[in-house]
Structures are given as structure tokens and as C-alpha cells.
């Protein structure tokens, strides 16, 4: 399989406004996206996601490293890169005072499509994105979700081989987010190569084939969602007891069937027992406790969420605001 996107050791350094202090927005980012697949770039604000996208879409020059999109060098062949990519950014970059139709027509013509072909594409896209009725209204009258859809339609007008979506659902309400996912899934099914950035673990899990976790300008882990979860640790049985007094007994009993050290939290009466083998082990744990007459308030099998993955890898939560300078500054 050929790689649609290749980045090697990208470095971008911003000088802070006040003085000599430097911010390494990217500190050696390498990634590959095979054709027809989706890579989710996952990380908190200021991690370097947007900077990576801006370099790959020729908006920003890297200070070191190199990158190609469909084989074209993003610095030396930027014009060729621009003619095969589509970009939809964090902020819906459409002209508020033009109608939906006019915006798409403008983008199509600037994509160097002939007039007739542009008109045809605009009609198709408005239809596809459920905006036909709103096509003659100025963007000012659109809802947030409609703006995003139009922005995405703008990125697709030239039938790009490679699509970049920078936080496509940030700021959308849950319903619009689901609708957006549906649209993106449709594109992915049609075989578009996609690089998607997101702060939402759920979104990466939902849409991406592979996930690269970015933190402070570096990729700190890469793999499928399952691989990442396994990397952090397997399943565990979580139990809450009725009686805190029996917690030591329970620990002793469960240690015999656990694959790792059993953790106890006396204050919350919780016991966490690492395990392998799914629901069988859950039933086993329940039976052992029942046999000894230890009453259980709650028992369940948990797989690590991507939240756990993130926390383990970075030492902080995904949604946590970092104190670093905003990467768009």
C-alpha cells in the first residue's frame, strides 16, 4: 500500500513575542498515512496538531524535517500539493456575507475548475450535505452545524485525494457532532485518505483506523484504538463491596485469580482486579466472593477507555487546558 502522507521529523519553533523564549510547537513529528485510511491525530490544545496540519497543507513551512502528500514535497511542490488536498479548519472558514452556493462556487473556481463543472459540483455537494434549501441564504443565517458542513463541502469541491480535517466537531452540539460523524464516515467509506485532528478520544475511536497521540509537539504513541488500549493494560474486574470490613478477605481471594496485583480503595470499598479472559473471569470472581459470603454492591468488567490511555501516556487528561501558548498565536 502506498503512503498518501509521509512526515519525517517535522520541527516548528515559534519565538514568543516578549523575548528570547522559544516554543517548540513541533519537536520531531513523524507519521505516515497509507492511501485510503484514516489517521486520527489526538491531543490536547497546544499539543501541535494544528501546526502539523498547517505544515502538511502548505500553510506553514517546517523549520526542519520534510513531508510529502501523494509524493509531492509540501515545501518545494506546494502548488501541486494544494491541487490534490482539501482542508477544513478549526474555524469554519467561509464568507459570512456570501450564500452557501456562492461560497462553494468561489472555492470551486479557485480550485481551477471550469465554470460549468463548478456549478455541477456545487449542486451535488449542497445536495449531499443536506444544504440545498439553504443554498441561497447567506452564511450569517446558518447554524454552527450547517457552517461546518458547508466548510467541509468547500474542502471537497475539487474531489481531493487527501483530506485534512482540523477538529471538525469542536464546538458543535452533540446532535450536530453525530451528523458530522455520519458525513465523515461516508467519505471514508468512499475511500478518501483522511488526516483528522481531534481533542475527543471518542471521535478518534469512532472515525480513525489508526490513532497517533500527540503531546507537547511529539507523537507519544501510535496504533489502532485496540492496540493503544492493550498497551495501557488489559481488562479488569471492578468490584464495590457492601461491607468495608471484608475488603482484605476479598483481596486475598481475588489475588488467586488475578493476572496482576489487586488494588483496593478502602474509602470507596472498591477493588480492582486485573484480568484476562472476559466475562468468564467476571463470573468466577462473583462466585468466589459469593461462596465466602462477601456481599457485593456492584461488579463489572471494564476495558480501559482511551481516556485511560491518554492519562497513562501523558500524565494528564485530554481535556485539560495546557498553559502553553495557543498554537495559532
Amino acid at each position: 500500500m502506498t503512503n498518501a502522507i509521509v512526515a519525517e521529523d517535522l520541527v516548528k519553533v515559534y519565538k514568543s513575542r516578549r523575548g528570547s523564549q522559544e516554543v517548540r510547537a513541533l519537536d520531531g513529528v513523524s507519521l505516515t498515512v497509507p492511501e485510503g485510511t484514516v489517521l486520527g491525530l489526538l491531543g490536547p490544545n497546544g499539543a501541535g496538531k494544528t501546526t502539523t496540519v498547517r505544515i502538511l497543507t502548505t500553510l506553514l513551512r517546517p523549520d526542519a524535517g520534510f513531508a510529502t502528500v501523494s509524493g509531492y514535497d509540501v515545501v518545494k511542490q506546494s502548488r501541486d500539493v494544494r491541487s490534490i488536498i482539501g482542508l477544513s479548519g478549526q474555524y469554519a472558514a467561509v464568507d459570512e456575507n456570501l450564500t452557501g452556493w456562492e461560497n462553494l462556487y468561489m472555492f470551486g473556481r479557485l480550485y481551477e475548475l471550469p465554470k460549468a463543472k463548478t456549478r455541477e459540483r456545487v449542486g451535488e455537494l449542497l445536495e449531499q450535505f443536506n444544504l440545498s434549501d439553504a443554498g441561497d441564504r447567506t452564511i450569517k443565517t446558518y447554524s454552527g452545524g450547517m457552517r461546518r458542513r458547508l466548510d467541509l463541502a468547500g474542502a471537497l469541491i475539487g474531489d481531493p485525494q487527501v483530506l485534512f480535517l482540523d477538529e471538525p466537531t469542536t464546538g458543535l452540539d452533540p446532535r450536530s457532532r453525530l451528523a458530522m460523524w455520519e458525513v465523515i464516515r461516508g467519505l471514508v467509506n468512499a475511500g478518501t485518505t483522511l488526516l483528522l485532528t481531534t481533542q475527543y478520544l471518542e471521535e478518534a475511536d469512532e472515525l480513525a483506523d489508526r490513532i497517533a497521540v500527540v503531546d507537547t509537539g511529539k507523537i507519544i504513541a501510535e496504533g489502532t484504538a485496540d492496540e493503544l488500549k492493550t498497551q495501557v493494560g488489559g481488562e479488569r474486574v471492578e468490584i464495590t463491596l457492601e461491607d468495608a470490613g471484608r475488603i482484605e478477605d476479598a483481596r486475598r481471594l481475588l489475588s488467586a485469580v488475578s493476572t496482576g496485583e489487586v488494588e483496593v480503595e478502602p474509602r470507596t470499598k472498591r477493588i480492582i482486579s486485573p484480568t484476562q479472559g472476559g466475562s468468564k473471569r467476571l463470573l468466577e470472581a462473583a462466585r468466589i466472593l459469593d461462596d465466602e459470603g462477601i456481599e457485593v454492591e456492584d461488579i463489572g468488567l471494564r476495558r480501559p477507555s482511551l481516556d485511560d490511555v491518554f492519562l497513562t501516556l501523558t500524565g494528564h487528561k485530554a481535556e485539560e487546558e495546557t498553559l502553553e501558548e495557543d498554537e495559532n498565536a
Binding site: 502548505t58 479548519g89 474555524y91 472558514a93 467561509v94 459570512e96 479557485l110
Partner: peptide, 17 residues
Amino acid sequence: GKGLIDRFRSLPMARSA
């Protein structure tokens, strides 16, 4: 500010335009 310039700069259009 609205990101339109970024959009234009990501298109294969003539930059002078």
C-alpha cells in the same frame, strides 16, 4: 481573522489574485 485567507492559501489558486 475568519480564516478565509488560510482557505485561499490552501487552494491551488494564483496567490496574487
